[in-house]
Design a binder for these strands. Sequence first.
DNA 1: TCTTGATCCTCTAGTTGCTAGAGCATGTAG
DNA 2: CTACATGCTCTAGCAACTAGAGGATCAAGA
Lengths: 141, 141
Amino acid sequence: MSRTVPIGTVSRETGIKVPTIRYYEEVGLLPSPARTDSNRRSYDAAAVQRLRFIRHARELGFEVEAIRQLLTLSDQPDRSCADVDVIARSHLAEIDEKIARLTALRSEVQRMVDEGEHGRVAECRVIEVLGDHGSCLHDRH
Amino acid sequence: MSRTVPIGTVSRETGIKVPTIRYYEEVGLLPSPARTDSNRRSYDAAAVQRLRFIRHARELGFEVEAIRQLLTLSDQPDRSCADVDVIARSHLAEIDEKIARLTALRSEVQRMVDEGEHGRVAECRVIEVLGDHGSCLHDRH
DNA sequence: TCTTGATCCTCTAGTTGCTAGAGCATGTAG
DNA sequence: CTACATGCTCTAGCAACTAGAGGATCAAGA
């Protein structure tokens, strides 16, 4: 059988603070782990990976409800294909939009770094880049 | 002179709720706008664009402090190149990491959609994709 | 002009997603 | 067998909103 670890170790391995791990359990993102005889939580590798997923997804700006859905996708053994598809597609669109916006922001910040290297920071369009309407990043003036 | 609009219009145009706009003003992300004779806020186009930037940046998972820095970059007329460069570079790294993670997540969700179309949802690796260590998205077995 | 409904104001309080601390139990190293 | 780290639960605080009360103002119609 695989090794299980206490919450502090999980915290160190995932970079998620101990109370936050307990919080994720409380709100149902993470299944309640087994307990030792002395009532301490003991986590397996799957729990650690799930926590890492939660952390990264949060850093990427997904809200807890969206993460719950993505985790549910992942938990589905092989059933309810239609539901899974609907959820997956909507998240795909969301992800594409995030990538598009980040790519635009990236190139603008990169330009600032490049120009900064030559001693002058030209006028900055960071705001314009992310400040535009819609998701299509249409050509600017 | 350019048209200015009341807060409700700004809210509709940006998708940010009225109290949230006032909150952004309170915490210094948005400069206090001009007021009408009857003390109502009136916003110009620049304010609207700045709010759209804030919204998108928040959706992308940047915290308020990071947004404040990015906005400061944008507000710099042409001074303090070194500071700007340091800030820009650190955000560049952060942005690259976000893009890498999102791209990985995207391809996994895409795979689920593709396989779902053929009637079966294969085992899902969404968690594995974002659950990995570090930022390098190293090759999985 | 008067009124009625939408919109604005300020201020306070609630929600979400954590995060820190009190007070006590347990585990482990010397 | 201390002693100090780590765990437990529970309560309270913080960041970033969000909603509502109570009151002023504006804009359109009778």
